[in-house]
Computed example of a mutant assay.
Amino acid sequence: MRKALSRLTLRQLQVFRAVCESRSYSRAAEEMALSQPAVSLQMRQLEELLGQPLFDYQGRQLHLTAAAEALQAASRDLFARLEVLDMQLSDLAGSLQGQLNLALESSAKYMLPHLFAAFRRAYPEVGLQLAVVNHAQAVRRLGQSRDDLLIMTQVPTDMALDFYPFLSNPIIAVAAAGHPLCAASSLSLADLSGYPLLVREVGSGTRRACEEYCQQKRVRFAQQLEIGSSEAQCEGVLAGLGLALLPRHAVQRELASGLLCQLPVQELPLQRSWCLVSQRGRQLSPVARAFADFIQQRRDVLAALEQRFNA
C-alpha cells in the first residue's frame, strides 16, 4: 500500500462523500457544518495524497474522475465495515443497535413503514436509512452494493442474488367512483382498452409488469398518459383522466373511502410478491440479518399486513 494512503483520515473521507453525493462544494460544506474554503482545502489535501485529481468541472457541473469513483467505492466499503463493527460491539454488549440501510421500489413505501414499525418494537435502538426508487434504479443499486437489503418484485435473473418472497402485491384496475365501468358486474381486460390508461414512468416495475401482462393478453391501450408516481396516477384517476393499473397497497385508502372503485376484471388482479433481496454471498450486518430473520419468522406480522392492505 502507498505510504500516502496511510495518512488518509476518516474526516477527509466523510467530506469527500458529501461532495460526491451533493456534487457541490457549497452544499457539502452546509451538510458538514464547514466553510466552503475548508471543504476545498480537505479535497486539495486528499488529491495530493492520491496524486490524482478527484473532480472535473464541465461547465458548472461537477463530475467525478476515475480516481474519485475508485475512492468512493473504497470509502463506501470502509464505512460499511465500521458500521458493522459498531453493531457487533452493541451485540456483544447485549443490545442490537445500528442502522438498517434499505432500498425499496416506490410502491412498497405504503407497506414498509408498518413492517419496520413492527420490527422496531422488537429492536427499538435500530435506525433506518431508506431509499425509495423505481425498478431500474433498484437494479443499479444492487450492482453498486449500496444497500444492506432491497425490497422489489421482479428480481433480476442475470445477477447473483438471494431473495425471499414474503408478501403479496396484487395489481388491480381502478376507476373513479361514478365511472361507467364501475356499474359492470364483470369485465375483460380488453373492455378497458377504449379508455385512457394512466401509466408510470419508464423504469417503473409496475409499468413493466403491466405492459408485459397486456402484451401476453394481446390487449393494447390506444391512449396512455405517463404520470411519474402512483400518487399522481391516483389523483389523475380521481380527476377523470382515465383508468389505472395500480398495486392495491397504493390505493387502499381511496378504495375504503369509496373515492375509487376496483373494476371487476376477470384477468386481474395481477399477482406479484414483494421479495427481500441481497447479493449472494454478501455477509449481512447484524441489523440486516435481524431484519431478514424477522421477515422470515414473524408470519403473524405479515398476515396482519396482508389483511390490512388486501382486504
Results as ranks from 00 to 15, higher is better:
L50M: 07
E105Y: 08
Q97A: 13
L192Y: 07
L102W: 08
R298H: 11
A73G: 11
M87Y: 05
A118K: 13
R280S: 15
N310K: 01
S204C: 05
R146I: 04
A183Y: 07
Q99Y: 00
R218W: 07
P264C: 09
S285L: 09
M87Q: 15
V301G: 01
R140K: 15
G281Q: 03
Y213R: 15
V19W: 09
S273Q: 14
R60V: 05
L305K: 04
A122E: 14
A131C: 14
D162K: 00
Q144Y: 04
V265Y: 06
F166I: 03
A288G: 02
V219D: 08
M111C: 00
V301L: 03
R220K: 04
F294G: 04
Q296P: 04
K109I: 09
G258F: 03
A122K: 13
R17H: 08
F221H: 01
A103C: 05
L245N: 00
Q144R: 12
P196D: 01
V202N: 02
L34W: 06
M87L: 05
Q97C: 13
A66S: 11
S230Y: 12
C275T: 08
P165K: 08
P196Y: 00
F163H: 12
Q36M: 08
A117D: 06
G194D: 11
E21C: 05
L5Q: 07
A33V: 07
A4K: 09
L41S: 06
R44D: 02
S229I: 13
A118W: 13
E30H: 05
R44E: 03
Q129D: 14
L130P: 03
D56S: 15
A244H: 00
V277A: 05
I151P: 10
A136T: 09
I172V: 15
H63R: 12
R27L: 14
S6W: 11
D293W: 09
E231T: 14
V277P: 04
W274N: 06
Y213M: 14
L187S: 12
S35Y: 15
S188Y: 01
A183R: 15
Y195P: 01
V277H: 03
E30K: 07
Y57E: 07
A70D: 13
V126N: 12
L10Y: 08
A288P: 03
L197R: 11
L225H: 00
Y195E: 08
V39F: 01
A177T: 00
A18I: 11
D191P: 11
E212Q: 03
G94H: 01
G94N: 01
A244C: 00
Q61Y: 10
A29I: 01
A303M: 00
P247G: 11
L102E: 03
E254S: 07
Q12V: 02
Q271R: 11
Y213H: 14
R121E: 15
